[in-house]
């Protein structure tokens, strides 16, 4: 597989995106490309335009200038920040995983296994905990056999070990499925080392590169300070353990 990742075959490419909400310029000349199989993390302070960029990349909104190109017939799995489901809508987890397309029961079982949500099938989606909901959303995204998985702040509501476990899980999924991962985080602590590439956004792209390059970059330090050394250590510490345990709030 890795040998087939040719250059110039980006899954998704954004050229010079700009976006304003009224007077406020949210994104200014943002360009990026996502290559097959890589894990890219978008970091930036609150209000730096991260979510707007995700909305542009997934086609929710259109840019004022610039454009987004997808590989033809790109299979895109999208995990939104959160899903607030109106309790007036009855919906079991299994039914939700079959939306909008019916999936083969075997595929459902596999996705449930990969995300650790076996046995939740008959539960109502509106009654899931934050962590369970996140896993169900991930399972649903995996059912598209994605070439690219886009996650918007996937670990909101998880504690730090839970977060670390989630990222390691993503890394393993990437290795197993060969999909690229593009995710947003406002929390740099655990996310950095799980990424092949980090893009630091503050309305424009401040800096990008491997996690270590970015964490040393002056632009990054200007935004986030110096306090990430301990967090990287925490990640490495977690890495020594077995990751079979999931931090599930069942």
């Amino acid at each position: 597989m890795p040998g087939l990742w040719g250059r110039g075959m980006s899954l998704l490419r954004a050229d010079n995106l700009s976006l304003s909400y009224g007077e406020r310029k949210v994104l200014d000349g943002v360009s990026l490309a996502i290559e097959p199989g890589e894990i890219v993390t978008l970091v930036g302070p609150n209000g730096s335009g991260k979510s707007s960029l995700v909305k542009l990349l997934t086609g929710q909104i259109r840019p004022d200038a610039g454009r987004v190109q997808r590989k033809p017939d790109l299979r895109l799995g999208y995990v939104p920040q959160q899903l607030a489901l109106d309790p007036s809508l009855p919906m079991t987890v299994t039914r939700f995983l079959n939306l909008p397309k019916r999936r083969h029961p075997e595929a459902i079982r596999r996705a449930e296994g990969e995300t650790g949500i076996m046995g939740l099938g008959e539960r109502q989606v509106s009654q899931l905990s934050g962590g369970q909901m996140q896993r169900v959303l991930l399972a649903r995204a995996l059912l598209t056999s994605p070439e690219l998985l886009i996650l918007d702040e996937p670990t909101q509501g998880l504690d730090q070990p839970g977060e670390a476990a989630f990222y390691l899980h993503l890394e393993r999924l990437r290795d197993e499925l060969g999909c690229a991962v593009f995710m947003v985080s406002h929390d740099l602590h655990v996310v950095m080392s799980a990424s092949d590439r980090v893009i630091c956004l503050n309305h424009h792209i401040c800096c990008e590169g491997t996690p270590h390059v970015v964490s040393e970059a002056p632009e990054y330090r200007a935004l986030f300070g110096h306090g990430t050394g301990g967090a990287l250590a925490l990640y490495q510490h977690e890495h020594d353990h077995s990751h079979e345990h999931h931090h599930d709030h069942a």
């Binding site: 997934t58 086609g59 929710q60 895109l76 799995g77 999208y78 939104p80 899903l83 489901l85 809508l89 919906m91 939700f96 939306l99 909008p100 397309k101 886009i150």
Partner: peptide, 19 residues
Amino acid sequence: WSALLTATMSEELAVASGI
């Protein structure tokens, strides 16, 4: 039906599914 349901649950998810 399926498209309506998906769009009712989440417009974001609907758009990502091409609805």
